[in-house]
Simulated assay, not measured.
Amino acid sequence: MNHKQLQYFLALADTLHFSRASERCFVSPPTLSRQIKQLEEEVGAALFLRDNRSVELTQHGKAFINYAQSTLANWRQFKSECVDDNKPLTGELSLFCSVTATYSFIYDLFSEFRQRYPAIELNLITGDPAHSIAEVASGKEDVAVAVKPRHLPQGIEYLPIGRSRLVFIGPTMDCPLKSTIDKHSQGAMPWQELSFIMPEHGVLKERIDRFCKHHHFTPKVYAHVSGHEAMVALASLGFGIACVPEIVIIQSPFKNQVQILQLRSEEIEIGLVTKTKRLYDPVVKALWSTAKGLFKL
């Protein structure tokens, strides 16, 4: 059993899809499958149930997640204690963020970090920002970009890197929804008559729920969607209005297909999150320090 196999196992346990897991690990699906099989032989039990259509964790596989995560965390901690200050910093670091964040924040951060620490291997994983803190808290990823919640979980550190207004958007294409929006553009919007594209969970959903409660209506939900970018896409097609950070609109390929509704909006703060104890790792500490110098809020 080696650390690469543990990383492959965690990637497959997270995605439950050989192609996506192999892409994340930068290996071919046959290589990933072979490594998982070798790991199962060494463990002495099946970790996954798999056929041509699906992959599922067995009970042994679910239990093995904690072992794999703690083993890799202990290994990184040990390596950090063996760092020679006279040699270039080496190691690897994983960062989880939305697609929008890669353009808005992470490109500049990785560019600066790469110049300072060229020997460090950087892994970027994209997904729904509502999962960011959970990805870090579970130990799956070292660092993540997250919208600042009202209360940070214990043991999580936060570093602000940006802000963005929250805006409601609707379609620009001719459709019944646009007709309703245009009809009330100069007056009170009939929120109870509009369909909403809602996030599945997270800080953004909490903000929208609070808005609806303040205006005394229950939203008519067309769909619950994972990810801000998908919310913009559905809004552009006239399925419903959506509330997203303005920075998502700026970076979206659908920015000309949506309109920002004339509505007073609030602001959210965006930052990096990591486990407090991970800041003792020189690699994570180096990224944190680079971000502090780059994003001075």
Rank of each mutant, 00 (worst) to 15 (best):
L12A: 05
P118W: 04
R24Q: 07
H151M: 15
H151P: 00
H215R: 14
P199N: 08
E23S: 13
S98R: 01
L6R: 07
R50A: 14
M189R: 09
N123Q: 15
A146N: 02
T100L: 03
I241G: 06
L93Q: 06
I161K: 10
E42F: 07
F113G: 06
S70L: 14
P30Y: 13
Y280A: 13
K4T: 15
A21Y: 06
M198P: 04
R207K: 15
I268E: 09
H17I: 04
K37E: 10
S195T: 05
V43N: 12
E40C: 09
I120K: 01
V147W: 11
W288C: 09
K220Y: 09
W75V: 06
L261V: 07
R24W: 04
T102K: 06
F96S: 08
L204S: 14
L6F: 09
Y158E: 11
I36Q: 10
P199I: 01
L159A: 08
T180P: 04
L261R: 12
I120Y: 01
E112G: 09
M198Y: 02
V225G: 01
K285V: 06
K220G: 05
H151N: 10
S195W: 04
W75P: 00
Q259T: 02
N2C: 02
A11H: 09
K220A: 08
A230E: 03
F211E: 10
I181N: 00
Y280N: 15
I181Q: 01
C82I: 15
A146M: 03
P190C: 05
F295C: 10
S236W: 00
L166K: 03
A11C: 07
A286R: 02
H201K: 15
D281M: 03
N123V: 07
I268D: 10
Q77M: 05
G61R: 02
L39Y: 12
S164C: 10
Y107S: 13
R24P: 04
R53F: 08
A45G: 00
V27Y: 12
A144V: 07
P88L: 13
A188F: 12
F26P: 04
S19P: 03
E92N: 01
V203A: 14
A63H: 13
S80P: 05
L279W: 12
K79A: 08
C25Y: 02
P153N: 11
K62Y: 05
V136R: 08
L272C: 11
Q7E: 15
A130H: 00
K178W: 13
L152D: 10
T71A: 13
K37N: 09
D84E: 08
G162Q: 12
Y103R: 10
Q115N: 09
P190R: 03
H151Q: 13
E200Y: 05
A223L: 06
R165P: 04
H214N: 13
K148E: 14
S252Q: 00
G271V: 12
Q192F: 02
N86V: 03
M231N: 02
K220M: 05
S28I: 07
I125E: 07
E266D: 15
M1R: 07
L237V: 09
G293C: 14
S226P: 03
I169N: 00
V248T: 10
I247P: 04
